[in-house]
Amino acid sequence: MRIVLATRNPGKIFELRRIMAGFEVVGLEEFPHIGEVAETGLTFAENALLKAHAVAAQSGLPAVADDSGLCVDALNGMPGVFSARWAGRHGDDKANLDLLLAQVSDVPADRRAAHFTCAAALALPAGQEQVVEGLLPGHILSQPRGSNGFGYDPIFVPEGEGRTAAELSPDEKDAISHRGRAFRALAPIVRDLLG
């Protein structure tokens, strides 16, 4: 069962191949003619569907896309859908993390609640679609810790955990992550729709 992941992010591709075991998962690196899809939606689900439909239409294959981000209570749920470009340039993890830490620098530790959200969408070339969401509650630290993961992982401590998401092993992270939860919920839907 061949599925296109609507991303060129190597960290995300590696992570999702583990989660979607049993499927032949390829990334956009195999489809150089497919350009970036503008994330113009106001929700994670809207952005995931935009990407999945565009890739399904251009590849002729079932496409899976996600949109995810960090929602910080003290920032009224931001950076949210703007997580990947919070500091202005898309995908600059260090700049995004540094800006977020500066914005919450005066927020007491007990008021740094946050959660990661992931919307995972499946789109078929004929137009059918499904979306599921996964959440991972936790809180934000004042300094990064750990070298695993990517994005905001080094400053995010999942609920019930003493380590940051960047200090967890890939298997530990997959078991609890917002992306893992969303894609595990999507996997049986993909199997049902694709037979």
Rank of each mutant, 00 (worst) to 15 (best):
K12L: 05
G127F: 01
G127L: 06
G151W: 06
A63Y: 08
P125G: 09
S83P: 01
A48F: 02
S142F: 00
V107M: 01
P170G: 10
K51T: 02
L28C: 09
P144D: 06
L61N: 04
S177C: 03
L135T: 12
A187V: 03
G127W: 08
Q103R: 15
E129A: 13
A165T: 09
E133W: 01
G91Y: 07
E29S: 14
V132Q: 02
K51Q: 11
L168P: 08
G27S: 13
N148L: 00
E36H: 02
F31A: 05
R112L: 00
R85D: 08
T164F: 12
V131C: 15
F150D: 01
G60H: 12
G11W: 05
A123N: 07
G146Q: 11
H139W: 06
E24Q: 12
Q128H: 10
L49R: 15
A63M: 11
A113H: 11
V72G: 08
Q58P: 02
A175V: 04
L136D: 02
K51G: 02
H178W: 07
G195F: 01
Q128A: 15
V131G: 13
G11V: 04
A102T: 14
P158S: 12
P158R: 14
T40Y: 06
H33Y: 07
V72L: 04
A182H: 11
R8G: 10
